[in-house]
Design a binder for these strands. Structure first.
Lengths: 210, 210
DNA sequence: TTTTCAATGTAACTTTTGTTACCCATTTCT
DNA sequence: AGAAATGGGTAACAAAAGTTACATTGAAAA
């Protein structure tokens, strides 16, 4: 029913059966906050449909988009928070409709001892998230805003599978932890360079963009 | 002999025995590169003495200090690289003399199924490293250089257990991915504010610093 | 339709950071 | 000792990013 095999996770039948039994399907809609700063987490999510964005916030309320989770992904933060009963340091927000399987924290360690495929999955997830954080650090530490903006737009493009990105300058500024004026300025520059077209709440990436 | 119990790791006796058997003690001296970009990793280190710094490098050769590993810590990157046979994305460098136990990659998964304390240790390590990366991102994304420099100095202070930090402006600039002139300028400002004293290859943090 | 509001454009200015260039002092090498 | 290398101070300038302020435009609500 949850049909995780379809997504190439290669879980053992016995594990799939257990997931069927204890995993609870949950649904979220655009902009729903799935996980938040300082909140305790009692379930580990496995995303089955849609996209979740993971954000880090500073004391002054500015945010930074770290990475996206999509089908088959899980949140490593959630895993260790569950197992160690710690508070979340990040915020997870639904981008569009999201479906996920919620695994109760009581099962996580148990499955680690029983199922090699579960161990693989957890290790693999941690590694992927780790690499994404490294990419994120690289972006912020080594690249200027114009480059980062281009990366941001490319990520959106890949994620949406479309050259038309429906987003306001405010949203971009938020997710990149800068101000709207700066983003507008850089976007206008990209438009002047013939790489994008700007409309209200919409950016169109031209062929010359990539 | 390796005496890991002394460090509060709470491994089961049977696991300690296995570590005694297969773990190999390795020694490094200041500035030795323990792990490097693009290199395959076949062992997982558990630090028993000294400090290791973990760095990320960009295409142009600039580096950024991510965090330190000290006694009882392990490198999560190493763990997943071992298990998944992937190349390292980071560089690990000894700060002073370092002793570590090298665990062969063949044991990592096996112990996960056999020893709850090993699972705890791995999960805990991943979480700690994850949180350090988040701190690192927060620093670079949300804070200005002067704040970051103060954090840098505080970290060194804590690590060395001393108010006297033996380091050149060049080194600081390297680890913070900026230029020497900028660091000298900011340090001089801190000195003028009466927070530090500057000498050749040495910075003394005054009481008013913290 | 008129009003209201959110989204964007843009100028002018400040602050922060990076760069270049050249200085002097100390240490190390020959 | 003299030469060379390293570490640090500082000025002057350039580039990048942040800030403030205000105008314009399009969309939605009254």
């Amino acid at each position: 029913m949850h049909n995780l095999t379809a997504y190439n996770l290669n879980f053992e039948p016995a594990l799939l059966k257990e997931i069927e039994e204890v995993g609870e399907l949950k649904y979220f809609k655009d902009a729903d906050i799935i996980m938040d700063y300082g909140r305790y987490i009692k379930i580990m999510p496995i995303v089955t449909k849609g996209t979740i964005k993971i954000l880090k916030m500073d004391e002054n309320g500015r945010e930074l988009l770290l990475y996206y989770l999509s089908s088959n992904d899980t949140c490593s933060m959630a895993y260790s928070c569950c197992v160690e009963a710690k508070k979340s340091e990040i915020r997870a927000v639904a981008e569009g409709d999201v479906e996920l399987i919620a695994i109760p924290n009581t099962k996580l360690d148990e499955w680690q001892s029983k199922y090699p495929s579960w161990r693989n999955y957890i290790t693999h997830s941690f590694n992927e998230r780790f690499l994404e954080l490294l990419k994120s650090i690289e972006s912020v530490a080594f690249h200027k805003l114009d480059d980062r903006l281009i990366s941001y737009l490319k990520d959106k493009q890949r994620l949406l599978g479309s050259n038309v990105i429906k987003v306001s300058h405010y949203q971009i500024a938020d997710e990149m932890a800068t101000s709207r004026v700066v983003i507008s300025r850089l976007l206008k520059q990209l438009e002047n360079d013939g790489k994008i077209l700007l409309y209200r709440n919409e950016i169109k990436l031209l062929n010359s963009f990539s």
